[in-house]
Design a protein around this nucleic acid. Structure first.
Lengths: 333, 333
DNA sequence: CTGAAAGCGCTAACAC
DNA sequence: GTGTTAGCGCTTTCAG
C-alpha cells in the first residue's frame, strides 16, 4: 500500500498569512482572486507566498468547494488507435478550463466500466466523459451514475436520454462511397467490427443504406470481424472468395483496413489492379499504412463535450461532420 | 468555469452513524478496516451504509490521511503509438494497488512538462511517473519536483540520480541486427529519431556499436529523421541514393519503419528483392504494417515503476530485456 | 476592504 | 472494542 513517504512539510496558507502579517482569509482571496483586495496587501501576500514557495493544497480546496476540477474519462480500450486521439483531444479541451483528466481504460469490459464509474464518483470528479464500451450493457450503470455526477457520452452512446457529443458516422461512410464510385468502383464490400460499439453498428447500417441507394440491384456485401488485425486478413480472404468481383472494401476502422490491404497486396500479384481499401478514424495506422480514411473532428467533439458539461450547450446540437482523407489505398493503378 | 451543478446531497459517514446508532469513528473503522470491530456492529454498519447507498468521500479522506491514492503519469505524446501501450501497462499495474492515474500529455514540450509537474504536485499525487520528453531540458524540473513527491522515471530517463524503470534499448537493437545478419543481410543502415529522447539516442548508439562490431570494415550508415511518417519516406529515399547497396534498414521506431517500408515497396518494383525493414516498440503500427519489431516488456516495466514507488525495490535492478517479434518485413522473398 | 470563526467529510489520538 | 474530540488546509459566511 502507498505508505506515506516522509517528505518535507509544505507551507500552508496559514504560514503565508503569518509571514505577511495578515489573516488566512486575505491570503486566500488574493491567491484565488475571489474578491477585491488592496493592491499593497496583495503584493505583500504574493511576496510571502513565493518566499515560502507556497502552493495551495487542491485537496483541501476541493473538500471545501465541493469541486475537484477533474473530469473522469472512461474509454473502452486505449490500444484501439482511435482512443489515443480522443484522449488527446479531451485533454486539450479540458486543460483550457483548468480541468485535469483521471483516465480509466475498461478494456472493453462492461463490469470494469461500471466499477470505473464508481471509482470516479467516489473521487468526486466534476464530470465523467465516457465512451461506453457496449451499446446496451453500459446503459444501466451510466444511468445510475448520472444521478450523482454530470455524465457526458463522447463518441459512442449507450443511453440517448443522457447528454452526448457525437460525430455523424453515416456521413463518413457516405463520403467514402462517393469517393469510391467517383473513382470508378462498382462492386463495394464492407467489413464491420464488433457491433456492440454504437459507432460500429452505425457505420454498418450506413453502408447498407447508401450501398442500396447507389446500386439498388446489388445486395449489400457485408461481413463482420473482430478488432484484431489477424482476423481481418482471413475475413478479407473469404470475402474475396465469396464475391470475387469486388473492387473495393470499406472497413469499419483503420486496423481492419490494414489487414485487408495486406491481403489485397498479395492478390494484386495475382491480378487485381485498381483494387481499393478504406479505413475509418484516420489514426496513425491510416497514416503509416497509406490508407484512405475518415477523419473525425475531434477538437470540436471534445469541446462540445466540455460545453455540455459546463451547461453552455443545453440541448444536443446536430452531430459533427467528419471529413475524407484520401491516400494511396484508393489511388488508381 | 465548472459551476457546481446541483445534484442530490450524498450521505456522509455521520448519516450512516446516526442511522446505525453508532459513532462516526466506528463506521469509519468498519469501512476502512483500520481496526478490529465487533462482528454484529460491523454488520449493522454495513446495513446502514448500503441502505443509504453510502460511498466514502475520498477527497475528505485524502485531506485527512495525506494520501490521494493517485499517481500522476506524464508522457511526451500520446500520439506516438508507443505511449498508449505504456499508459495501459501503468494503468493495469497501479490498479492492482488501488491507485488511479492522472494523465498529462505534454506534447513534447518541456515547459508544459514542467507545469504538469506543478499541477500534479498541487494535487498531492502520491507519486509521479514520468517519461521525460527531453533528455536534458527535462532534468531541472524533475529534480525540483523530486523534493516534493516521489518521482519515478519510466521508459526514458533525464536524471540518472532519480529512480527509473527502463528497458535495455541496446539489447533490442542487437536482437534486430542478429536477426538481419542471420537472414543474410550484410549492408544495414539505421534511421534514428529525435535524439533528445533518451531511448532514441540509446538505440542509435547501440546501432553504431554493434554495426561496427559485426562489420568492422563498413562505417555505420546512419541518418536521422523526425517522428512523422512523411519525413521518414524522404529520408529513406536519400539513404538509398547515398548507399544503393543497402539491404536492410533498422528504424528507431515503428512509425519511421512504416514510412521506409512504403518506399521499399515502390523500389521493389525496380528490383530490390529481399530488402528488409525493421521497427521498434512493436506498436499497433508494427502489427498492421507486418513489421518485424522489438517488444518491450511493458507489464514488468510498469510493475517495476510501482515497486520503486512503494519502496519495495530500493535500488535500480538491471534494465529489463526486450524481445524480438519477427514479421513479414524481414521475410525472404 | 480585512479578520474571526466555522466547517467541508473524514480519520487518528486519546479516553473510557 | 467503542465513543469523543480535534484537525487535515482551505474557503466562506458573517462582522466590523
Amino acid at each position: 500500500m502507498p505508505k506515506p513517504v516522509a517528505r518535507d512539510q509544505r507551507p500552508t496558507i496559514q504560514d503565508v498569512a503569518a509571514l505577511a502579517g495578515l489573516s488566512p482569509s486575505t491570503v486566500s482571496r488574493v491567491l484565488s482572486g475571489a474578491r477585491p483586495v488592496g493592491p499593497d496587501i496583495a503584493e505583500r501576500v504574493r511576496q510571502a507566498a513565493d518566499a515560502l514557495s507556497f502552493r495551495p493544497n487542491t485537496v483541501a480546496r476541493s473538500l471545501r468547494t465541493q469541486q475537484t476540477s477533474t473530469v473522469g474519462l472512461v474509454i473502452p480500450d486505449i490500444i484501439n488507435p482511435f482512443f489515443p486521439l480522443l484522449v488527446q483531444a479531451v485533454e486539450r479541451a479540458t486543460r483550457e478550463h483548468d480541468l485535469s483528466v483521471l483516465l480509466v481504460d475498461c478494456g472493453n469490459e462492461p463490469e470494469r466500466e461500471t466499477s470505473a464509474l464508481d471509482l470516479l464518483l467516489d473521487r468526486r470528479v466534476d464530470a465523467i466523459f465516457i465512451s461506453p464500451c457496449h451499446s446496451t450493457a453500459s446503459a444501466p450503470a451510466l444511468r445510475s451514475a448520472s444521478r450523482r455526477a454530470r455524465i457526458v457520452q463522447i463518441d459512442r452512446v449507450a443511453d440517448d436520454q443522457l447528454p452526448f457529443a457525437i460525430v455523424d458516422q453515416g456521413h463518413g461512410i457516405q463520403l467514402l462511397l462517393e469517393h469510391l464510385t467517383a473513382t470508378g468502383r462498382q462492386h463495394i464490400a464492407f467489413i464491420g467490427s464488433d457491433p456492440s460499439a454504437s459507432t460500429s453498428s452505425l457505420r454498418a447500417d450506413a453502408f447498407e443504406r447508401f450501398s442500396v441507394a447507389q446500386n439498388p440491384r446489388q445486395s449489400p456485401r457485408v461481413m463482420t470481424g473482430d478488432f484484431s488485425g489477424a482476423s481481418s486478413a482471413s475475413i478479407t480472404r473469404s470475402l474475396l472468395e465469396q464475391w470475387p468481383d469486388t473492387e473495393a472494401i470499406v472497413c469499419a476502422n483503420d486496423v481492419i483496413a490494414a489487414g485487408a490491404l495486406l491481403v489485397a497486396r498479395e492478390r494484386r500479384l495475382e491480378g487485381l489492379p485498381g483494387f481499393a481499401v478504406t479505413g475509418f478514424d484516420n489514426t496513425m495506422v491510416a497514416e503509416t499504412g497509406d490508407l484512405t480514411s475518415v477523419q473525425q473532428p475531434l477538437s470540436e467533439l471534445a469541446n462540445r463535450a466540455v460545453d455540455l458539461f459546463l451547461g453552455v450547450a443545453a440541448t444536443e446540437p446536430p452531430p459533427l461532420l467528419p471529413t475524407l482523407v484520401v491516400r494511396g489505398s484508393t489511388g488508381p493503378r
